[in-house]
Every structure is written in C-alpha cells, then in structure tokens.
Amino acid sequence: MSEIISKAGLRELAKEWIAQGKVVAGPVQTKPGLVMYAKLASADEIVWEGFVRPANSVKEFVFPRHELLCTYKMEGNRVELANDGAEIPAQILLAVRPCDAAAFPILDHVFNWDCRDELYNRRREATTVIALACESHDESCFCTSVGLSPQAERGSDVMLFDLGEEYEVRSLTDKGRALFAGKAQPSERTAPTYMGPDPRFNPEQVKQFVDGQFTSPYWQEATLACLGCGACAYNCPTCHCFDIVDEGNSQHGKRVRNWDSCQFGQFTLHASGHNPRPDQGSRQRQRVLHKFSIYPEKFGEILCTGCGNCTRNCPEGQGMLTLLTGIEHA
C-alpha cells in the first residue's frame, strides 16, 4: 500500500511550511535554460518538471559556501571569542534529485568520524530531504555507475514519484512521516520503475587504476583541457573541501570557512613554495583518488553520486565522466 498526494495538495503543503517559518528550498528557474536550487520565497517558484537536474548542488543548505566559525574582538592584548549562537531554522529541501539526497549520508561520515563537526551536524539535523525521483537523464548522468539509481532512496526522508496529477509519497523516516502525516491518502497506485542510464564504468576498476597507476601519463594526458577552475567541485554534491580564513581588522572580525577546491593551484602550496600537486594532471588525479579510493577505503563509500554536475558545469565539457570512462582505454 502506498500513499499519494495531489500536485496541488503538495504545493499547498509547501506554502504551509513556508508560512510556518520553515526554510524551504527547491529547484528554481533562475533564467531560461538554467535551473538551480534556491531558497523559495513562495511555493510557486519551484519548478517540478522539465529539467534533468539543477546546475548547482543542494549541499549548500547543509554545508554553506561561507560559514562563520567564530568572531573575535580585541582590546589591548586581550581577545574575546564568540560562536555563532544563531538557531538554525528547520529546513525542508523539496524536489531534490536522488543524486543530491544520497550525498548527505555520504558526507555524514567525514563530518562525524574522529570528531563531530557541530556546524555541519546542526544544519543536517534541522533538514528534511524530500526527493523527487527522476524520469529522465541526460548524457552527463551516471548514477547507475556508482551504485545509485534514478529512484534511489538513500538520504531521503521522503521520496516522491510523479504519477501525472499526483505524486506517490514514500515516507522513509520519522522526520518524513511527520511532514506528510494526514496529508497523503492511501492508494494502490505506484510509480513504474525507471532504469536511468546504463552503467558507464566500473568504480572498482577506477580504484584499481588510481591506486596502481598513480604515475601513469594518463592523468596528464586526459586532463590537458582542464583549466583549473572550481566549477566541478563547487557544484558537486559530495565535494566538501574547505578553507579557513580570518576576515576583519586588528579590532574585530571573524574566522570563517569557505569552500575550497583541489583544482586550485594554491590548495596544497606549501609556505616554502613546494607544491606536491604542481599541475592540473595531479590535481585531477587527486579528485579521482579522493572520490574512488580514499573515501571508499576510509568510509566504505564512493564519494560520488553520479549526478554529472562536474561535466555539465565544466566550461570545456570535461568532468569526471570523461576522465573515468577513459580509464578503460588508458
């Protein structure tokens, strides 16, 4: 037995959530041909269909691009520190793609192993993820290559399936059930299975290659077109590298963390001038290594959900997929 909710009903529900003061975010038509996840001012802004996936990742609502760590105030030689005590409002991420939702449980590992990152966790706990199963894919999609699918439930509190006039509602967690309790009706209808793209590569083979062929000329050769921007990493649902910087003056200011990317030359530059990753080949290799070897070894999971955003956002049409599928012939 499944549950359904009418599309109009869901829109009303979203309006209710916004009225309750919850932060609701979802895919918005930023401009023609560009859909991005954004905070909704009104439930009408959300676009439900007609696109494969937003150009950015929804991770920003849990791991923002810019986050306050603490503020400092200096008086004479005394310093006073204060943490951001601001309450994180409950937030609902609506119509999220399964490849974005799946990133959260993957990211949970790194922000909780060894020591807990409170900044991440407090946002994560305040967040409910309502995913919308995919009904189409494009040539950049490769979720099926990394063990996910267009209907993967991983990381979602609720999963929606388009049934035409209604959505099938699969509440997967207590958080999700609480949101839809009394709002969805029981129904016999259930969405057909959508298979998505055929697998494009074997992640195990990628791991073997990056571990075993660390010095292969492939890394240089296959990444010549990379210009070293962070468009792939910043729009990736699982990339989580960050930088810590101070902003302010000698009296007061703040310490913040900002997204950073392994594709930037300065990422690993030592004070001595030595750079362990002096060129784009070694930086791209690092990205593959982190996603397909280091992370799986440490946490048992691939640090990639196959969303394809790296390719879609690459100014030169490169991205993970090109690099990974090329390994087979390397």
Binding site: T30, M36, N56, R65, L227, G228, C229, G230, A231, A233, Y234, N235, N258, W259, S261, F264, N313, P315, E316
Partner: peptide, 12 residues
C-alpha cells in the same frame, strides 16, 4: 548572490 567563487570566469 549566486556566485560561489569557482573562478571559472577567470580561468577561461
């Protein structure tokens, strides 16, 4: 507001 400082503009 949408700029995340990926510096794609600079790199291209």
């Amino acid at each position: 507001e949408r700029c995340v400082k990926c510096y794609a503009c600079r790199q291209v």
